[in-house]
Lab assay of single mutants.
Amino acid sequence: SDIKVHVGDITVELHNVSEEFARLVEEALRLGLNEEQAKEWAHKALH
């Protein structure tokens, strides 16, 4: 599904992702990663 993740003043739109993936992206953003890094990190975490 499509999910918007908000962290501080950052909003990341995720398309066709699981809630778990979105949660991992949100966690990575909170750790200070940028959007691209957060998506990559979440992807690796799920595989």
Rank of each mutant, 00 (worst) to 15 (best):
A45Y: 14
V7L: 08
V12Y: 02
T11N: 01
D9C: 05
N34V: 03
A22I: 07
S18E: 06
V5Q: 03
E13R: 00
E36D: 15
G32M: 02
F21M: 05
V5F: 03
V17Q: 06
H43T: 14
N34C: 01
R30I: 13
V25F: 10
A42G: 02
V7T: 05
V12C: 06
E40W: 08
V12N: 04
A22R: 06
L46E: 10
R30W: 14
L46C: 03
L29V: 05
V7C: 05
N16S: 09
L33W: 08
D9I: 10
E36P: 09
K4L: 15
L46F: 11
H47E: 14
H47D: 13
V25P: 00
E36L: 15
A38S: 09
D2P: 14
V5P: 06
G8K: 02
D9K: 03
L24C: 02
L29R: 03
E36A: 01
S1W: 08
V25M: 03
A28D: 00
A22E: 04
R23W: 10
V17T: 09
H15V: 12
V17M: 06
W41V: 07
E40P: 00
I10M: 10
K44L: 10
F21A: 01
E20G: 09
S1P: 06
S18P: 06
N34F: 05
L14Q: 02
A38P: 00
R30A: 08
S1V: 11
K4F: 09
G8Q: 06
T11W: 15
H6L: 07
V17R: 03
E35T: 12
L14S: 04
L46W: 12
D9V: 09
I3H: 15
K4E: 09
K44Y: 12
G32Y: 01
V5M: 02
H43S: 12
H47Y: 10
E27H: 14
N34T: 12
L24V: 02
K4R: 06
H15E: 07
G32V: 00
V12R: 00
L24E: 02
H43N: 12
S1R: 04
E19K: 12
A42M: 01
D2K: 02
E27I: 14
L24H: 09
A28M: 06
V25E: 01
N34Q: 07
D2G: 08
H43M: 10
E19H: 13
A38V: 01
R30D: 04
A22K: 06
K4A: 13
G32S: 02
A28R: 01
L14H: 04
E35M: 10
L33E: 01
L33Q: 07
L33T: 01
V5E: 07
E27P: 00
L33R: 04
R23Y: 10
E26N: 06
L31K: 13
V7N: 05
S18V: 05
Q37P: 02
H43P: 00
V12M: 09
H47R: 04
D9Y: 05
E20T: 11
L24P: 00
V17C: 04
A38R: 00
G8T: 05
L14V: 04
I10Q: 08
E36H: 11
T11P: 04
W41Q: 07
V7P: 05
E26F: 11
D2W: 08
V12L: 10
L24K: 10
H47Q: 13
H6D: 12
E20N: 09
E35P: 04
D9R: 01
V17S: 07
T11H: 08
H47I: 13
V12T: 05
A22S: 07
L24W: 08
L33K: 09
E20Q: 14
N16Q: 10
R30L: 14
V12P: 04
E26T: 10
N34M: 08
S1K: 10
S1G: 13
E36N: 12
K39S: 05
A38E: 00
K44W: 10
I10F: 08
E19R: 12
T11Q: 08
D2Q: 07
G8N: 07
E13Y: 04
A45H: 15
L29P: 00
E35A: 15
H6C: 08
K39F: 11
A42Q: 00
E13S: 12
N34L: 05
L29D: 00
T11K: 07
L14N: 04
V5H: 04
E20C: 07
E13D: 11
N16R: 02
H43A: 11
E27S: 11
E26M: 13
V7D: 03
V17A: 10
R30Y: 15
D2V: 15
L46S: 12
E36W: 03
K44N: 14
E20R: 11
R30K: 14
H43V: 12
E36S: 12
K4G: 10
V17P: 05
W41I: 06
A42C: 01
T11V: 14
A42P: 01
E19I: 15
A45T: 14
K39V: 15
A45Q: 14
R23Q: 12
K44P: 00
N16C: 05
L29G: 01
L31H: 13
H47K: 10
A42Y: 01
H15A: 07
E19L: 15
A42F: 01
A28H: 02
T11S: 09
E13G: 05
R23E: 09
H47L: 15
I3T: 05
N16E: 07
G32F: 02
G8R: 00
D2S: 14
L24G: 02
K4W: 12
V7Q: 05
L33D: 01
V7H: 10
V7M: 07
A22G: 09
R30E: 06
H6R: 02
H43Q: 13
V17K: 06
N34A: 09
V25Y: 05
E19A: 12
L14G: 04
H15L: 11
A45L: 13
E36Y: 12
E27D: 11
G32E: 02
I3P: 02
L14K: 03
E27Q: 14
L33S: 04
E36G: 11
A22L: 05
E27N: 03
V12S: 05
A45K: 14
H47M: 14
V25N: 00
E19V: 15
Q37T: 07
I3Y: 15
L46H: 09
D9E: 12
Q37Y: 07
D2Y: 13
K4M: 14
S1A: 10
L31A: 14
A28G: 12
S1E: 14
E19Y: 14
N16A: 08
L24Y: 13
W41M: 08
L31P: 00
D2C: 10
A28Y: 09
E27K: 13
Q37E: 15
T11D: 06
D9P: 08
A38H: 00
N16V: 05
S1H: 13
H43K: 12
H6Q: 15
T11G: 05
K44C: 07
K39T: 06
Q37G: 06
L46R: 00
A22W: 07
A38G: 02
L33G: 01
E19G: 09
A28K: 01
S18Q: 06
E26K: 09
G8W: 04
K39Y: 11
E26P: 00
A22D: 03
I3K: 03
E13Q: 12
R23F: 11
I10G: 03
K39W: 08
E27R: 09
S1N: 13
E26V: 11
I10W: 06
A38T: 00
A28I: 01
V7W: 15
V17L: 04
G32R: 01
E19W: 15
I3M: 07
G32I: 00
R30F: 14
L46I: 14
L24D: 01
E40A: 10
H15M: 10
E35R: 07
H47W: 07
L46K: 01
R30G: 10
W41S: 08
E20S: 10
V7E: 05
A45S: 13
T11M: 12
I10V: 12
I3A: 02
D2N: 13
E40R: 05
A45M: 13
E20L: 11
D2F: 11
R23I: 11
L14E: 04
S1C: 10
S1L: 12
L33Y: 14
E27G: 06
R23A: 15
V25S: 00
H15Q: 11
E20V: 12
K39I: 13
E20P: 08
V7A: 07
I3Q: 07
A38W: 01
A38Q: 00
F21L: 04
A22Q: 06
H15D: 05
A45N: 15
E13C: 03
E35I: 14
S18C: 02
V12G: 04
K39R: 10
L14R: 02
K39H: 03
S18M: 06
H15G: 10
E27M: 15
G32H: 03
R23C: 06
A28C: 02
I10D: 05
E19F: 14
R30N: 11
I3L: 08
V17G: 02
E19P: 15
K39D: 01
L46V: 13
L33C: 07
E27Y: 12
I3R: 02
A45W: 12
N34Y: 05
H15I: 11
V25I: 10
E40I: 03
L31F: 15
N16L: 07
W41H: 08
N16Y: 07
H15C: 03
E26L: 11
E27C: 07
A28V: 01
V7F: 15
F21Q: 02
D2I: 15
T11L: 11
V5I: 15
I3V: 09
E35C: 04
N16K: 05
V12A: 06
K44A: 14
S18H: 06
F21E: 04
A28Q: 03
Q37N: 10
E20A: 12
E35D: 07
L31W: 11
E19C: 06
R30C: 06
L31Y: 12
V17Y: 06
V17F: 04
W41D: 02
H6E: 15
L33A: 08
E35K: 10
L29T: 02
K4I: 15
K4C: 07
K44E: 13
I3E: 07
N34W: 02
E36I: 13
A38N: 00
K44V: 13
S18W: 01
K39P: 01
L31N: 14
E27F: 13
E26R: 09
H6Y: 03
V25G: 00
